[in-house]
Design a protein around this nucleic acid. Structure first.
Lengths: 200, 200
DNA sequence: GTCTATAGACGGATAGAC
DNA sequence: GTCTATCCGTCTATAGAC
């Protein structure tokens, strides 16, 4: 809501300290983990002091929220879009494709969220951030197969989404595979797992 | 299980204190995260003090190692076994099946390792524990499809392993699905992803 | 907007008595 | 094997000057 995160990080541009903090923090969080990264460390890499950070963000977790909320918003947008489409295989395929795009564009955030599941809690209710992911995942699954599908269909579709994220994370930096090739292979897998499941 | 104190007098917990520490620690680590769980917390739940923990384990990370190493040993055993089998679809299927069994039997450890990737480092080389998982996963993938398989085959097979773990973690506590049914569905998915890939 | 300085809390680890 | 007591480090967060 109030998190005005630029959709595209203008790398290196000076002047917007807030965005630079976000970029460096995400980098360090994804690399070393949330707990293992101190505010002092972030400040040092930026060439400022801890106190400067507190001018822009009210707490350490507020920094996380500023970019992780953006990621969940993108998922919500996808869900909203999908709800307005006619159910069917074509829409199903496009959901998977758009999901992949979201992960590609926010892969740093996603990696961070994935690897720090255990330590991240939302400030309000104390629930794991993974609990912010799970209902959205289920919503997408339902949109692919309908709410009355079999358990088998539900599990297969869930596996499709996880195959997308796992494949992307493991193979996106592989030299022998172009991004286009990787994208094709990933979507083929996801399509195979969701074929002939719902809306017959 | 039984967290009960032996009924007999002062002889205490006999030799099982070490095991009780492991059980409680794993529980808390998996639930709250490694960093978020203090030794004080573990000690309190056990009804002992922090210092008692240090009698049994030389550090906090030593507690983790005591059960996470066991998990990697199981994966190594699977790899060793697989190397001695004739390559082919039948062996491939059994690899997937045995992998699933390992995850089921050590699901708490696996969940812990998965959710704490970011914070866990091995004491020696400072590498992420995930880096202890990745080469083993690749070894299993190679055993299913051979070292000269296409990238497509490699990604699909990797996705098969991730589908197994993700499906298990998300659906193992679902009331409407029996463990047998779940097992069947999961293996069906994994088989689909590894069908017609290697050893034609 | 950024700084210095410090409060305030907590965690891991150790020493030594029993 | 377990305890009490404590050291020492690091961290988040705040106060107030410039």
């Amino acid at each position: 809501m109030d998190a005005d995160v630029p959709a595209d990080g203008h790398a290196g541009r000076r002047g917007d300290t807030r965005a630079r903090i976000q970029r460096v923090a995400l980098e360090l969080f994804a690399e070393q983990g949330y707990d293992a990264t101190s505010l002092r460390e972030i400040a040092e890499r930026l060439g400022v002091t801890k106190a400067a950070l507190y001018y822009h963000f009210k707490s350490k977790e507020d920094i996380v929220r500023s970019f992780s909320e953006d990621h969940f918003c993108r998922m919500d947008s996808l869900i909203d879009w999908a709800r307005q489409q006619p159910p069917g295989p074509a829409t199903g395929h496009e959901i998977l494709e758009r999901y992949l795009t979201i992960l590609i564009e926010g892969s740093d955030v996603f990696r961070f969220l994935e690897q720090n599941q255990a330590t991240l809690r939302s400030g309000d209710d104390g629930k794991h951030r993974f609990e912010q992911f799970r209902p959205r995942l289920y919503a997408l699954v339902d949109l692919l197969i309908g709410p009355d599908a079999t358990t088998r269909a539900r599990i297969r579709t869930t596996a499709a989404f996880f195959s997308i994220s796992a494949s992307l994370m493991l193979y996106r930096d592989q030299a022998d595979t172009s991004p286009e090739e990787l994208r094709k292979i990933i979507l083929e897998i996801a399509d195979d797992l969701t074929r002939d499941l719902g809306y017959p």
